[in-house]
Design a binder for these strands. Structure first.
Lengths: 191, 191
DNA sequence: GTCTATAATTCGATAGAC
DNA sequence: GTCTATCGAATTATAGAC
C-alpha cells in the first residue's frame, strides 16, 4: 500500500468513527484499533486530533462555497437556484457523507480562532441563501413568506441527506433521492 | 432557596451547558463551576452524568409522544395533522429548547440498553409521521411525492426551531415563528 | 448540604529503541 | 514506519470530615 493510500485509509477510518461516535467520544486509540496499529502510529498521519476535524471542516466548507458561487453567477431564476442548491448538497453529501455531517454536528469542537473563522464562512453561506429568498419574494417567484424563516427552513430540510449515503449508495440511488427531494421541497407537500 | 428550586436550578444549568458544549465536552466540573460549588456537590442532585441526559431524553420524548397521540385521535385531515405537528414541535421547543436539542444531537451518548429503547421510541414517532404522508398521498390531500422522503424532509425542516428559543423568547415571538413556519412548510415556497 | 482529598481510569501526545 | 513505555493532565465518582 502506497503512502497516499495509507493516508486515505486513515482519513476514511477516522472520519467514519467521528461520524459514528462523535468527535469528543472518538479517541486516538479508537482510530488506532480500527487501523490495526498502535496509538503512536496515528501521529504519522496527523499532527493532532483536532487537525483531523479542522482539515475536514474547512475543505468541505470550501467545496460548498465553490459550488454556490458558481451557481450564483449563472442567470438563473430564484427557483432554479434552489434546485441547483439541492443538487449541490446531494452531490457533496453523496461524495463525502461523513464530512458533510461534521459541518452540522462537529464544528463546535474547533478551538476558538478556527471556530470564529468557520462561523464566518457559515454565515456567509447562509446569507447567500437568504438573498435568494429575499429576491425571489420581491420578484414574485416565491409566495409571501418570511425570507429569514424560509431560508433557515430550506437549509434545514436538506440537512439529513448525508445519512442516506453513509453506508454506501449507488449513483442511481443518488439521482432518485435528488429527484424526490427536489419534488418535495420545490413543489411542496399539498395539492 | 427550597430544595425543589435548587434541583430546578441545577437542571437548568446542566442542560444549558450540555446544549452549548455538547454532552461529552461538558464536565461535572463545568456544571459545578456554573453552580458556584464544588464537583462533589453535583452528586446531591444527580446520581451520575449520564442520568442527566437519560432523564431529559425520555421525559421529552414522552411529551412528544403524548402530543402526537392526542392529535392522531382527532379526525383531522392529513394537512391539518401536519399543521398540528408543527405547532407541537414549536410549543415543546419553546418550553424546553435545550431538551428538544438533545433529542437531535445527544441521544447517541446513551448507554446501550437505554439507547435501544430510545431508538425504538424515535422510530415509532417517525412511523406516525410517515403514515400521515402515506395516507395523505393516497387520499389526494398531498401531491404525488415519495412518502418516506417527504416525512424525513418534513421532520428535518422543523428541527431547527429550538435554536430560536434558547436565549429566551416572548409568547408573541413564539406565535410569530409558528405562523411563518407553517406558512413556509404547508404553503411551500413557490407561487 | 458543603468542602478536601483522592481513587481509578482514560485521554492526547511524546520519547526512544528497533 | 512500527512498537513499548510513559508523561502529565483531565475525567467520573466516592469517602469522609465539618
Amino acid at each position: 500500500m502506497s503512502v497516499a493510500d495509507r493516508r486515505a485509509n486513515f482519513t476514511k477510518i477516522a472520519h467514519r468513527l467521528i461520524y459514528e461516535k462523535g468527535y469528543k467520544a472518538t479517541t486516538m486509540r479508537d482510530i488506532a484499533q480500527n487501523m490495526g496499529c498502535d496509538v503512536a502510529n496515528i501521529y504519522n498521519y496527523t499532527k493532532s486530533k483536532e487537525s483531523i476535524l479542522e482539515q475536514s471542516l474547512f475543505d468541505t466548507s470550501a467545496i460548498f462555497h465553490e459550488g454556490i458561487k458558481k451557481l450564483m453567477r449563472n442567470e438563473l431564476t430564484p427557483k432554479e437556484k434552489l434546485i441547483e442548491i439541492i443538487k449541490l448538497h446531494v452531490t457533496i453529501s453523496y461524495e463525502r457523507p461523513y464530512q458533510a455531517a461534521f459541518l452540522i454536528d462537529e464544528w463546535r469542537h474547533l478551538s476558538n480562532e478556527k471556530l470564529n473563522l468557520f462561523l464566518k464562512e457559515r454565515h456567509q453561506y447562509e446569507s447567500w441563501i437568504f438573498d435568494i429568498f429575499n429576491t425571489g419574494i420581491m420578484s414574485n417567484d416565491f409566495r409571501i413568506i418570511d425570507p429569514k424563516i424560509a431560508s433557515i427552513t430550506f437549509l434545514s430540510s436538506i440537512r439529513w441527506v448525508h445519512n442516506q449515503f453513509v453506508n454506501g449508495s449507488s449513483p442511481k440511488q443518488r439521482i432518485e433521492l435528488e429527484v424526490h427531494l427536489t419534488n418535495c421541497i420545490i413543489g411542496g407537500y399539498c395539492s
